[in-house]
Amino acid sequence: MESLSNILSTDFIYGWQVWLDDWFLVFALALFVIELLRYTIKKKMSWNLLGDSVANYATLAMFIVIVALIAGVYAGVFFYVYDNFRLVELPLTGWTILACIVLADLAYYWEHRFLHMNGFGWATHTVHHSSPHFNISVAYRHGPMDWFFPLFFYLPLALLGFNPVIIFLAEVIVQIYQTLLHTEAVKKLPKPIEAIFNTPSHHRVHHATNKQYLDKNYAGIFIIWDKMFGSFAEEKETVNYGVFPRINSVNPLKVFFSGYGKFIQRLWHAPSWSYRCKLFFKSPTWAWQQEQQEKKQ
């Protein structure tokens, strides 16, 4: 416990973050190969699955290009807020890092829930959900604006006095944990783990189109947030993955830009300005229901 109180240097923490970020991608690729072998043995391997996986890594490549362009500004905003507006200065200790991970996880919950609750956020997050498959490559399926929304949810941590290097480390840790959940290979983990932590089972529910599973299990690391805030569902019925409307494509460009394409299309064809506003602020389910009704008439 003593060691958690030791003061760490920002270089040390930053080094950890970079190390984790780089090596985890290699590790995840290895896991993905194992998953592919598993699908082959189970005779579930298909051209669509392979094409979808390639598309997933292609969206990652496009996302990395965007991140490379904005990373400096993104980090700059955190340092600016931290340097000028922080309320206190928290020491760089293990305890601070642990607390920051917990709070970053809570921020992740709200950011994720936000992305599902309005058309503008959903237009980028739908990319991640549009795969009909569920494996670790899906975790890397990113939308073009996936970097933008976290900014607003993690920035308050800088205001509270967490050094930006700690915030970035916490973001990476939550992200890495989340990535590992994207698998069908792990059925259910021991009860106490399923009770406290987010698990592949809980996250499969999040990716489902089954009615009882819609808008559930937003958690990053701790599933307790969902249980507390009433957005939890247990995996019982077999999950169907994907989104409505179906995307039916493994073309990386189409996958990457589908969300904003659809969003702009909806805005263009909107019957009124109030409808346009609602497209921004109302949930994507609302827009879908409106269109279904229109079709019936």
């Binding site: 109180s5 020491p91 200790t93 305890w95 607390a99 709070l103 308050p156 509270l160």
Partner: peptide, 17 residues
Amino acid sequence: IIVLAVWFGVIYQPTPS
């Protein structure tokens, strides 16, 4: 409330020797 509780926790964490 959770954020404030955790925040106060880290502000008054055991300090180094």
